[in-house]
Design a binder for these strands. Structure first.
Lengths: 234, 234, 234, 234
DNA sequence: GATGAATGAGGATTCATTCAT
DNA sequence: TATGAATGAATCCTCATTCAT
């Protein structure tokens, strides 16, 4: 009870020891190679368990078991269950940024809306299909007992980005309106993703189209007010 | 679907079958009356706890406490936690049907789309604001560890109804398409409702408008293909 | 995690329900008869375990096991380990007051000091021999990680009483001095009791004499300053 | 009694026996030097943690962390938690002997009692203020779950010394009596020290005086029986 | 019907200790 | 030596559910 957690903050990764010299910086990394692998294992296991059970019902013991380690090992790397979710969110977010984020972050806002949506949603959908835990975490603190809002990086990072994009798209919109539209779009995308993930094959493709359609139709009038030439989708 | 008093422990003896003789029918009725009150109490408590904690984190003890009864009493009316959610769903659904369901069930599909949406969504929103647990249950078995799909009356009843309405609206659509569109619409309404419930006052009103807008714009083209004259919303 | 403890505050005993009418007050007591017994069992078990292991090392599971019940049962009556200690302290204190407290509370301060000490220490020693947990709890929050000071009824009640007695005995002493002397006397009595409890038979008797002697000699000069004729002990 | 580096894991090989040849003796000495430093670090950390948490609640991980080393390193020098306490006791005892022990060991028993007490208690108090862990360890195995009696060097060494001193002071006393008186005096000094350590400034000084007073008054009559002229304290 | 006691497996988390590097 | 990873039993405590009254 008194002494607090053994675990160092895991998010600092192998850079825990402040690189005194570039030559030495390899040394501590060696030591933590196993640990690094364990963290990856644990996060993967957590992703699986979170997907299967949801955050609340996921037990740290189950995560440890899934990762093939003892409960104690888990707590050597994470101080508690929430930290696992937070770190998992962080990793996924980073992976997202690394893989598809470039496109996502540097959008050509002169594109017609349908192409713009393709360039935003396609990577997002692909990434979610590959990392279903992302979708779970995207929902954030909607349901109480979940991750505290402030720590919910995935949800807030994406929401903010959506808002930014809309800001570029609709420069005349007032902030409050923008925020509302962003929330709405994000909410719709999230629930659309759920539908998409819940189906496979052609059905999944159809839902993808449907999601793009609904977002397109929602935004098209706003977009049109402001701007450019015609776009494909009806 | 209604599991309530029927599910009582089997040792209840001869009172199981109601009204064995007209003379005796007064006694059991009073008994049942008290039972109904208990059930109502418990369901109200459950609604509160489910809203505050989510289904998974809600404990039957907490529900009993909130209802001001002992855990044993709770289990006299419900065989397990899921049954509470199922019955709560059933009651809410029935209440929904009683209060706003008439409009909902007998829609004038000749109305312009925007008015149609008003007549569907306004009662639904009102009802959800008054019964926030409804929204919680509407989400159904999206997250694992929740209510098993087959028992999730609220979700499936509403989804089916949405499908029916769309069927009337778009008589030429193929079933698969219809089902998909219904799923999409329902998903969007659900997440819109979440946003609505999460805000108050003017902000809430604004989100209501936004929800109607997005659904309108999504359906308008389909609706137009099939049918009638112009409608207000852009 | 969210809903807090099931357990009602156990210290209120069977009077939990506010006696609406004297006739009804017997009813709820019936219900809790078993519980009352359990609480007694648990406290007795706790006394044993606390004595054998000390507060910190005592585990609630061990207490439950010693009481012959499951861990869950323990937590139906006590919200946590500290509450057990607090309640045990309370019960012992009350038992102390009921059995020997009368003498203790209404001292004839005109007695010669040695007799006064006999009349204070003899019951205290007897009581501690019969309830060795009392001594454990008397030590209170000396060691960190123990019971929080504010909740340590045994320690503070006795200390206050010692101060009161000394106040009557030495009416001219200043409060700060009084407090110091009381602390000292109490500390000495506590460690003397430990010695007494650690021995048996004649050895124990000898330590009892020794404890009385040291306290006597400590107080005699102060006492003499103020007051009365000679007393026996050298 | 010193368990420190001797207790290392047996796989240490030939370095076990020191100084096999003069040529090699430099190497191990440096090794030992580093080891001593580690041990000192660990013991200092242990002292801090023991003081803050008590022996039972102190965790070896916490000690290692406080010492800035890994748990593995700790176990390279100490086979288990108790050994740390034992060794800490040993070191403190030795430090005590080195710093104030000379006076303590070669008392001028012809001094008047009050001066004698000053010359014993003043260094003891000073040392305890500087090394609060000493007080913690002095209490030894009073509370079960603590250090096993046989290994409790601090407690027994001091007790024996108190007995010796009293033996010199009261040469006519019988051994059993002597032992009892020593136990009593030691117990009182220990609890007095606790009070002293729990206060600061003037209040601490006052408690110091009080402790000296109570011991003085306890011993004076015995001392007088045997011996010498009058002494200051009343 | 109603109560509150009882259960015991399971939850998160810690800890003394060991092991591989 | 030193590290940090690993362990698994044990910690406190909760929960869905059952039982005796």
């Amino acid at each position: 009870m008194p002494i607090g957690p053994e675990a160092r903050a895991p998010e600092q990764g192998p850079t825990g020891a402040p690189a005194e010299s570039p030559a030495r910086s390899a040394q501590p990394r060696r030591r933590q190679a196993r640990g690094e692998r364990r963290i990856a294992q644990l996060l993967e296991a957590a992703a699986g368990v979170f997907c299967r059970c949801g955050y609340t019902a996921a037990s740290t013991n189950a995560i440890a078991r899934e990762a093939g380690v003892s409960p104690g090992t888990l707590y050597q790397f994470f101080p508690n269950k929430e930290a696992i979710a937070v770190e998992l969110g962080g990793q996924l977010l980073q992976r997202w940024r690394e893989s598809h984020g470039a496109v996502f972050d540097m959008l050509d806002t002169t594109l017609p809306l349908d192409r713009l949506l393709d360039s935003v949603l396609d990577p997002l959908i692909t990434f979610n299909c590959e990392n279903p835990a992302f979708a779970v975490l995207m929902h954030g603190s909607e349901i109480p007992g979940r991750i505290s809002e402030e720590h919910d990086a995935v949800h807030s990072a994406l929401l903010i980005r959506v808002e930014q994009i809309l800001g570029e798209l609709l420069p005349t919109a007032r902030p409050a309106e923008l925020n509302r539209t962003a929330s709405m779009v994000f909410a719709v995308v999230k629930s659309g993703l759920e539908l998409i993930l819940a189906h496979e094959g052609e059905e999944r493709e159809a839902f993808i189209t449907e999601l793009k359609t609904i977002v397109y139709r929602y935004l098209a009038p706003l977009y049109a007010e402001v701007s450019r030439g015609a776009t494909r989708r009806p």
